[in-house]
Write a protein that binds this DNA or RNA. Structure first.
Lengths: 244, 244
DNA sequence: TAGATTGTTAATCGATTAACAATC
DNA sequence: TAGATTGTTAATCGATTAACAATC
């Protein structure tokens, strides 16, 4: 099954809808939310392989998490399975996509057309998740007007006007941390309600209706260095105890 | 205080060493480890601003975490503070740097010289955390020989030989997910013990002495979409209840 | 010494796992 | 109906917060 077919599973008509899904929880913990994209990916893979149904215990073996956790996680949003049968793969995929807003057609801009910004706009990740990258912005007049992966670079002073006219939902911040706070405030005023922040600066936003997700690559690298350092230290200890 | 001066705080001679630090814990939970890089960043900032000492409650206000958590976190690694005084900023910074392996001089290569690989190699993040990016690798002969941010692109078939000769610790995977598993196995055979994985493929490594940190940008984007979707849904509910 | 603040233990809270009744 | 597997409740485990004795 190819990508287009898998994508089409999200459209409701393609899967039989259960009518009496129980009321989902009012609040779902972030521990659960962070796991949803991983279910999304594995379900896509299962559809691709033509798998029609799956039980929590079978999925637990593939994903290396407990079957209990899978059932608990899914039940935060209502009953997606059927006793004695398991889960319909396409239906579950459609439901999780719905929860994650894959069919929301969110519109995004990338602020900062440097290396990272250009790398991201070329990444198929946005399209796969139903997010449209409609423009890039940069302060450097030399690159304004360029087109990267079909997306053109606009001058930074058109930022507010563009966001308002084009109903931008998400701004990806790939600019220097020094201007991150100021640009964020301008974006929020222009109606942007999601910030995907790569600047490393921790943003201050009074408006509770604006969501921020920080991607701190340096922090991630450091946890790897911690693990390696730990391993080195324990190796050294072993060496020592061998010597004595 | 400039960056070089801050970096020099890590060298032991620059801060008075407490002699009787209690024995640190044998195992520290990943919840704590993930917070360490953030302490590292804030402490750097404090040093930059010339702050000499800080109490857990003062730091808690700046970092927006509880003072209790700060003290618990730090005490996993031994007593870095002094009753009635608080923490010596430079000393604490030096200690956390040590724990995170900032002075280990880890050597890294970037496998895949596409957009993301080039964006990462140009990022000052590696240098700031004491990791050397010594080479890039790519399968595309047209870009082999190029130099990005002073780092040259090598042909992929020299991978094992290069890693062994140059004692490479870390490999950053910025190549297509299709070849991720195969390349990882080659890297592990060549003695690489840290994998920073951007491919989105979940890697299978039998060797327990190899550490993997996955960066899944798509998953991160989806959690933002979830939040926005939630907000939209609750807005709609409000609209409805207003209508009735 | 008195005041401040850590280090550490105990209490609480939340998340994961286990168990099983409901039911397809 | 019998077997399978969910949905859900209860038990366990781990992480966070609160409290306070130790001590600088």
């Amino acid at each position: 099954m190819d990508n287009r077919e898998i994508d089409s599973c999200i459209e409701k008509n393609n899967v039989e809808i259960k009518e009496d899904t129980p009321m989902p929880k009012a609040y779902v913990s972030s521990a659960v939310i962070k796991r949803l994209p991983r279910y999304f990916r594995y379900l896509r893979e299962l559809i691709r392989n033509g798998k029609m149904r799956i039980s929590s215990s079978e999925l637990s073996k593939i994903m290396k998490v407990s079957a209990s956790q899978i059932r608990q996680d899914l039940n935060c949003f209502g009953g997606f399975g059927q006793q004695g049968y398991g889960y319909n793969v396409k239906y579950l995929y459609a439901k999780i996509s719905e929860i994650l807003g894959v069919n929301c057609n969110f519109r995004a801009i990338i602020v900062g057309a440097g290396n990272l910004g250009r790398a991201l706009v070329r990444n198929p990740m946005f399209t796969k998740r139903g997010v449209y990258t409609v423009a890039m912005f940069d302060i450097d007049t030399r690159i304004v007007g360029n087109t990267v992966a079909g997306v053109s670079v606009h001058p930074l002073d058109e930022l507010e006007d563009f966001c308002q006219r084009n109903f931008i939902d998400i701004a990806v911040l790939t600019l220097p941390k020094e201007s991150a706070q100021e640009i964020t405030e301008r974006l929020v005023k222009a109606g942007v309600c999601g910030i995907w922040n790569y600047t490393g600066k921790e943003l201050d936003i009074p408006n509770k209706d604006v969501k921020i997700v920080n991607v701190h690559l340096g922090d991630s690298l450091m946890t790897l260095c911690y693990e390696l350092n730990q391993m080195r230290n324990s190796d050294r200890k072993k060496e020592k105890s061998k010597d004595n």
